[in-house]
């Protein structure tokens, strides 16, 4: 059987996470792990960077770490 990815790295998926709560880059990467999306590390970084540039989320520091978030 072909391996199917159970998670898709899409703008809509990222948007939904960032509306729910502020997240660091690492938090986001954890949601879209390569073993779940089937993407390479490089693809994941590139696609996520493009999506974040498009979404242009708000940023704030929480515990001295930069978090992204979106409001509806």
């Amino acid at each position: 059987t072909p391996s199917s990815s159970d998670v898709q790295l899409t703008e809509e998926a990222v948007r939904r996470y960032l509306i729910r709560k502020p997240m660091t880059t690492k938090d986001l990467l954890k949601k879209f792990q390569t073993k779940r999306t089937g993407l390479s590390s490089e693809q994941t970084v590139n696609v996520l960077a493009q999506i974040l540039k498009r979404l242009n989320p708000e940023r704030k520091n929480i515990n001295e770490k930069m978090h992204f978030y979106l409001t509806e």
Partner: peptide, 20 residues
């Protein structure tokens, strides 16, 4: 691994730094 996650986060932040 954790170090791979760190590397990816660093790469992503580097990509975004030009933009932010």
């Amino acid at each position: 691994s954790n170090s791979e996650a760190d590397e990816m986060a660093a790469a992503l932040e580097a990509e975004l730094n030009d933009f932010m």
